[in-house]
């Protein structure tokens, strides 16, 4: 399995029947494709839709029906459309059970940075800042180290924050961590990685919660 497969397959296990879920742009979108058949959830799109279906059959794509990544999509039976303020009432108001987002950096305090690299062109945060403060459960999925081999799981984020102390769980290609009152806790090793391996590649301080 590729690192991406490891992360996506693990993230899928977070999804439970009955959930209303928002999946971020990029890798989180792949979670939707990996959901087991028959799982009964509603996927929300922050531009104004609850109940995203699969991509449309070629030739039926509709410019008036897109997701937050501006991709053409379809609606499931039981879907609804609404304006963007109502959409963010759902998000900010704590009505979305689960948000899965990508990350650039995560700190041991549960801070997330994923919207801006100083010195580069700023594209904007879109709905990420609202999602991290509003969803009942926030899970970040990302590679454990960057392309230079440096840990993305840090004592403190060096990049501008998207949210402070907002993450509940972090899933990387190496391990799963929870953010608790006591601190950041290692709860699972993934894909055959060892505690030594994870410790070596993690700048953040964490508690070993493996049983």
């Amino acid at each position: 399995m590729t690192a991406r497969d490891v992360i996506v397959q693990r993230a899928v296990k977070e999804v439970q029947d009955g959930m209303n879920i928002n999946l971020g742009i990029g890798m989180p979108t792949l979670v939707a494709d990996a959901l087991p058949a028959g799982v009964d959830v509603l996927l929300q799109s922050e531009n104004g839709m609850l109940g995203i279906g699969p991509y449309p059959v070629e030739g039926t794509e509709d410019a008036d029906l897109i997701n937050a990544g501006k991709e053409t999509v379809t609606a499931v039976n039981g879907a609804s459309y609404f304006d963007s303020a109502t959409s963010f009432s759902m998000i900010r108001g704590g009505h979305i059970d689960l948000a899965i987002l990508g990350g650039m950096e995560v700190s041991q305090h549960g801070d997330l940075a994923n919207w801006m690299i100083p010195g580069k062109m700023v594209k904007g945060m879109g709905g990420a800042m609202d999602l991290v403060v509003g969803a009942k459960r926030v899970i970040v999925i990302m590679d454990h180290v960057n392309k230079h081999g440096e840990s993305k799981v840090k004592k403190a984020c060096t990049l501008p924050l998207t949210g402070r102390g907002v993450i509940n769980r972090l899933i990387t290609d190496l391990a799963v961590f929870d953010f608790t009152e006591q601190g950041m806790v290692l709860v699972e090793l993934l894909d055959g990685h060892t505690l030594e391996d994870v410790t070596a590649k993690t700048e953040a301080e964490f508690i070993n919660g493996l049983t």
Binding site: Y55, P56, V57, E58, E61, A63, E71, T72
Partner: peptide
């Protein structure tokens, strides 16, 4: 004109 920014589809 209703341009589509990212045309994503599946085959039949």
């Amino acid at each position: 004109e209703k341009r589509i920014e990212k045309r994503t589809v599946r085959s039949k």
